[in-house]
Amino acid sequence: MAIANESHQEEHNMQEHHGAGRYVVIWVVLLVLTLVTVFTGRMHLPDFGLLLALVIASVKGTLVALYFMHLSEHRGANRLVFGVSIVFVVLLIGFTLMDFGTRFRLANPPGSQYSDLQAVDIGANPAEGRTGGHQQQIKQQHETHE
């Protein structure tokens, strides 16, 4: 009875009582990592700044999932569910970014770093309505669009 075993093992692990110390340690580590990420974030590292911040966030997230959410004591299916959901998040973001990265430049939104067109409207200064678009032609297009 695989399922009975799995349930039993999980129950057994959950029954095993840890001291509160473990939670305190995780809490302190999370706070330290938060300070680290704020510190490195304020350095405004070029290029890999966001990457570093996301790596730190992933470490923090993993700690929360493993210890606060007890994933380290759960088994089989629960871990699989969590893992698979992360894989699909990566899939969604990955394929979408791949599209923007490899697109025909004129198909990207105007004003973006991968487009040769200038922005139509960035929304500031509502009195004039348009401050970002310098091309009369595009402005007109936008007005007919509205």
Binding site: T37, G41, A57, G61
Partner: peptide, 9 residues
Amino acid sequence: IFLFPMLYL
């Protein structure tokens, strides 16, 4: 934990 660095940092 993910939104914080994404939005603020």
